[in-house]
Design a protein around this nucleic acid. Structure first.
Lengths: 356, 356
DNA sequence: CCGACTTTGTCAAGTCTCTTGCCTAAGCCG
DNA sequence: CGGCTTAGGCAAGAGACTTGACAAAGTCGG
């Protein structure tokens, strides 16, 4: 209820993170650069850096050019000082990767789900992590997991995940127990938003919405530089909003949800109804690009509905950066343009938007 | 760009605020209670409390019952240790009040705007503050101002306010200069949300949306315990969202905005069209309560549109508490019920909602 | 009623971490 | 080569929390 008290160790940890973040964003830097950037004294920075070097988190990489005085010793984040494991528990397969501190993917493994769910799916997670850990020397910092569904990030519990048939599953604690490292479990859209924030966007935006469209539709919302999860960890369950009052019934129980209009699953089904040759996502994309009129119509309708919803979101939250990620990106620029157009028409202000 | 460094003074300030907050929320408490609540040691709490008493912010209020040991010395926030001035720059009048630290209103003054705008309106603000300060002894902690329009809270600048004809007005700095105390300027809906968070809701929620419906429609969004302002300080400009594609033109340039459907101004105008005796807000409320069919129809349609939009918001943000404030509250429970019904119909989960 | 036990509040010493002031190393420049 | 500038580090100091001990002021059982 009340936040944590402040203490000396927290101060130190905070400042260490400050140094690490500065180094992550602008490396290489000298100790003096860091002092200027963080506002700390050179002495403090030297001390903090000493600790971080002892921990193997940063390293010296030779000397830089002098600007009229002693040449600085340049520092950077030690790429392989720690490794992380990231898992994406998709609907058809579980993907996992070993990543270093710069975000480079060192090893990547996909395991097909093949219809497994419940406890068998949990076993598959263990299998995946075991495979990733084999042959990796660097100390493991932690494991991050993105899964579809409603997830209690604080406790690492999967509240509810349809496809995997998981409910109230304490996935985080179980993995933590087995491997002895911190585990973060998050909704896949939320995880995508955090990843964008941490590795891709420069300068680091304060507010960012990442909309992930695959078989479902979900959004990760970054607000004031933090991930926003909502009261029930379900923020961004963007798919189950009805722009209109009618439409196809949705698996959530209501009708006309965005997910029944704009998800890849819905698009493929709608396309198949008019063009039986379209049976999967690549087929849909191909038909769209080939200009099959009925398919284009369906996809562009979806784009409009999506754009409307995005416009709504932009209008209410006044967020400048909205990213679209996921398989829909394959539909290309003109599809995105339709989304953009529709979003702009329903929002009042001038708003820069990036899409990917 | 980078956050502030952490320092000892920050630690102390943080812990003092921790003590103050605990005391604000649960007073009276003893030092030992505070130590248990905050996790600090009794010694630290004693020290922090000493400082706060010296500053006149908290005070001892006798001894409490013992529970097997020495009886505790109870503490509470000194109500009049500081006074604050709050201003609400409405569309028809400027209201101001002197408030103590418990939130009690000690003095309240209204000055009619009488069509003044631009510089004359600024003068009226000074007049109002002068009147409030006259005869108040306690030291002034600061001035808080809620104004309609888009406001840059960080710099205290009114970016744009239609009714007052203010644009890029550095209101905060000007008042700060004149009175020598910190000034916070915020969008009126944002201010209302912060006020709810600080004084009214218990336990203090993490996420809260306050929708203020008066002549316009605006929302203040509290997320992760902080006010969310959006990239351009325009978060919660809830009124200019079109639930449908058509409808009456809005002053924002588009059509069918929520403000043209659900604001008090719109309701009164729509009601007057069918029932010429309705000319103002009280008249509208009276007609509604009297059961005039056409007026009820209009108001309930508005409630449905509003509910839909709220449902949307709840669905996307997964926020549990939504409050409606402003003159619409006069329409009573059955109007609110219609909003609730409509909101529930467009949102998937079970969601507790309070309305006022 | 008295002694044992609890609880509260405080004091002194200790520890952690940042800062200040000074010093050395190392390079540029005239 | 000497003066100046920049980088990095060391020692002492200051601020704030913690630990351990203690007096004050209760309750409670015999």
């Amino acid at each position: 209820m009340l936040p944590e008290k402040a203490t000396h160790q927290q101060t130190r940890t905070f400042n260490q993170q400050l140094v690490l973040r500065a180094l992550h964003d602008h490396s290489p830097l000298s100790r003096a650069d860091l002092a200027r950037l963080t506002g700390l004294t050179r002495t403090s920075v030297g001390d903090l850096v000493g600790g971080l070097i002892d921990d193997g988190l940063i390293e010296e990489v030779g000397r830089g050019r002098s600007s009229g005085g002693k040449s600085p010793i340049l520092l950077r984040v030690a790429p392989d000082g720690r490794h992380l494991i990231g898992l994406d528990l998709g609907e058809a397969q579980f993907s996992g990767a070993v990543v270093n501190l710069r975000g480079d993917i060192l090893l990547s493994i996909d395991l097909p789900l093949e219809g497994r769910n419940g406890e068998a799916a949990v076993e598959l997670v263990f299998e995946l992590v075991d495979a990733l850990r084999a042959g990796d020397q660097s100390p493991l910092l932690g494991i991050g997991i993105g899964a579809p569904g409603v997830i209690d990030t604080d406790s690492g519990t999967v509240r509810w995940s349809v496809n995997l048939d998981w409910a109230e599953l304490a996935l985080g604690p179980r993995i933590e127990l087995r491997y002895g490292v911190p585990v973060v479990v998050a909704n896949d859209s939320h995880a995508a938003a955090l990843a964008e924030l941490t590795f891709h966007r420069r300068p680091r935006p304060n507010n960012l919405i990442v909309i992930k469209i695959g078989r479902g539709v979900g959004a990760g919302i970054i607000v004031n530089g933090q991930l926003f999860q909502g009261d029930g960890y379900g923020a961004g369950e963007f798919g189950h909003i009805s722009p209109g009052d009618d439409g196809a019934p949705c698996r959530c129980g209501r009708k006309g949800c965005l997910e029944t209009l704009a998800s890849m699953r819905a698009l493929v089904e709608a396309a198949r109804a008019v063009e039986p040759t379209v049976t999967d996502e690549p087929g849909l994309v191909a038909a769209f690009k080939a200009g099959v009129a009925a398919v284009r119509q369906i996809a562009l309708d979806a784009a409009r509905a999506l754009g409307l919803a995005i416009g709504w979101l932009i209008g209410v939250l006044n967020v400048r950066q909205v990213l679209l990620v996921g398989p829909v990106a394959a539909l290309g620029e003109d599809w995105l343009d339709e989304v953009r157009r529709s979003a702009h028409s329903s929002v009042m202000a001038l708003l820069a938007r990036d899409t990917q």
